[in-house]
Simulated assay, not measured.
Amino acid sequence: MKNIFLALGVAAWPFAVSGADCTRDAMLVFDGSGSMATLAAEAPFARRIDDARSALQRSLPRYAPYRNVGLVIYGPGPLGPCDNVTVAMEPKANADLDILGAVAGLEPDGDTPLAQAVETAVEVLDPRGGGDVVVITDGRQTCGDPCPMAQGYADLGVVVHVIGFKIDENFERWPGYYAESGGLKREPSRCLSDATGGIFVITNTVDELTDALQETMGCAVVGRNQSMLYLQSG
């Protein structure tokens, strides 16, 4: 880990410096559904969930000290395949180790109740005056439609960012499923980011997912002397 100090107004990052406001609480919505067990078609043949964990390990320490972050997990659990949504933790400071611990032993299972998971995250943020929801999804949305709720989230002061992970690969493996549901399924839940002013991005590698998490969850931090901008870069 190396430290980079830059004069105010100057940025160096794979994306532009995130515009996220660290005073706003954030909820990470993590895909633990059965499709996240899919192996990559290329070496090192890692499962999607393992790649997602790697991206979190890289990105979380960059912003967890500076903003309150919570976690919702969807997919695995004892309920019906579309009912397993768990609030693993509400937003708190320095949550990186707790979040990593919560996803470390997660075994992908169940369907994809993404709409219910986002609704649950919004319910956590609503009493806090809104905040940011960051969704990681591999695209196989199978339980309900989140789009009708999107404008309501914006009215509550919630911004939803959607990070698609290996969606194109899903489109190739299950063309019939996506054809039945229309073209939007190739860009799952983009309606959420469009309606709330969030970011939508498709990622295919650990590096891309790491950068997307930094862009949606991270933020610039101004030092106490108000003269320098402090960023951490791996």
Score class of each variant (00 low, 15 high):
Pro146Gln: 08
Gln151Ile: 13
Val69Ala: 05
Lys2Ala: 13
Arg173Pro: 00
Arg190Met: 15
Asn84Val: 00
Leu39Tyr: 12
Phe165Glu: 07
Arg224Leu: 11
Leu192Thr: 00
Thr120Pro: 07
Tyr178Met: 06
Val103Ala: 03
Ser33Lys: 04
Val118Arg: 01
Gln141Glu: 15
Ile199His: 14
Trp13Gln: 06
Ser59Cys: 00
Val162Trp: 06
Tyr63Asn: 00
Met228His: 12
Asn204Arg: 07
Glu90Trp: 06
Phe30Asp: 04
Glu123Trp: 02
Val69Asn: 00
Asn225Gly: 01
Gly144Ala: 12
Gly32Trp: 04
Val85Glu: 07
Ala64Thr: 13
Glu215Ala: 10
Ala11Met: 00
Asp21Asn: 15
Asp51Gln: 14
Thr203His: 05
Phe171Tyr: 13
Cys147Asp: 10
Ala88Ile: 10
Gly139Leu: 03
Ala93Thr: 14
Pro146Tyr: 05
Asp96Gly: 14
Phe30Tyr: 14
Glu107Val: 15
Leu60Cys: 09
Val118Tyr: 03
Glu180Ala: 14
Ala195Asn: 02
Val87Asp: 03
Met89Ser: 09
Glu180Thr: 12
Asp21Arg: 14
Pro146Cys: 11
Gln57Met: 08
Glu180Gly: 05
Arg24Pro: 03
Leu56Ile: 07
Thr210Leu: 02
Met1Ile: 01
Ile99Gly: 01
Asp25Ile: 00
Tyr153Thr: 00
Ile136Leu: 15
Gly105His: 13
Pro146Gly: 08
Met27Glu: 06
Ala195Ile: 00
Lys92His: 14
Thr203Ser: 08
Asp98Arg: 12
Leu209Asp: 05
Ile4Cys: 09
Asp132Arg: 11
Leu229Gly: 04
Glu123Asp: 15
Thr196Cys: 10
Leu71His: 07
Glu107Ser: 13
Val85Lys: 06
Ala52Ile: 07
Arg48Phe: 08
Gly182Met: 08
Glu180Asp: 13
Gly110Leu: 05
Glu208Val: 03
Ser189Leu: 13
Thr86Asp: 09
Gly144Trp: 14
Arg53Cys: 04
Asp168Lys: 10
Cys147Glu: 08
Gly130Cys: 03
Glu42Ala: 13
Asp168Cys: 04
Gln151His: 13
Glu119Lys: 11
Cys22His: 05
Val159His: 00
Arg67Tyr: 09
Glu172Asp: 13
Ser18Phe: 02
Ser227Arg: 15
Gly152Trp: 10
Pro14Asp: 07
Met228Asn: 11
Ala88Ser: 14
Ser35Trp: 04
Trp174Val: 10
Phe15Arg: 10
Asp168Asn: 09
Thr216Gln: 06
Glu172Met: 11
Val17His: 01
Glu107Met: 13
Asp211Met: 00
Tyr177Phe: 15
